[in-house]
């Protein structure tokens, strides 16, 4: 089996374990919402990004059906964002919030660069490392704004129990 295939397997397994492990039970709905919002956004943004050769995914799952990096878009980043969002600084000053964001984005970009450099899972086309940094910042920021909006002035998602009754 190729190294890449082991990584796929590891990503799916660790992604699910990571979600269960790092998202506290009481925050499970918030975690799932963050996961879904990020997935929807990255899927939408990666379509033009791949179409215009900003990046590509030479080795991927379901290669005939899509050129996009399914594992990375479907589980890898959404789970990371979900963990990021659930543990974000709600209180605290702007500086600590910014630092939290900055460290996360930089770590994720670094991880992405390692994947790009040492495996065939990703291949940067026109994209540079700072372009990737910007792209990931954009995805995290927009997803965070959407999640905040969704959970705005509701202490918990259950507050809208009547919605399905």
């Amino acid at each position: 089996m190729l190294l890449e295939h082991w990584i796929f397997l590891a990503t799916w397994v660790l992604g699910i374990i990571g979600f269960l492990l790092f998202i506290p039970r009481k925050d499970r709905r918030v975690g799932i919402m963050a996961f879904m919002i990020f997935q929807a956004l990255i899927w939408l943004c990666d379509m033009p990004a791949f179409k215009f050769n900003l990046l590509s995914a030479p080795v991927r799952i379901l290669p005939k059906a899509t050129n996009l990096a399914l594992t990375i878009n479907y589980i890898f980043y959404p789970v990371l964002f979900s963990i990021y969002y659930v543990h974000r600084r709600v209180k605290g000053n702007l500086w600590s919030k910014f630092l939290y964001f900055f460290v996360w984005i930089s770590a994720v970009t670094l991880l992405d660069m390692v994947i790009e450099r040492y495996t065939d899972l990703l291949e940067y086309g026109f994209l540079t490392w700072y372009g990737m940094w910007g792209y990931i910042s954009f995805l995290f920021y927009v997803s965070q704004v959407c999640c905040n909006r969704f959970f705005k002035d509701k202490s918990s998602p259950q507050a809208e129990r009547w919605a399905t009754e």
């Binding site: 919402m33 879904m36 899927w43 379901l62 005939k64 059906a65 899509t66 399914l70 479907y74």
Partner: peptide, 15 residues
């Protein structure tokens, strides 16, 4: 969003 989680994956598998 929940529908997308299902359709994105299953849609690709079917194709």
């Amino acid at each position: 969003l929940a529908t997308q989680v299902i359709t994105l994956l299953i849609g690709l598998v079917v194709v």
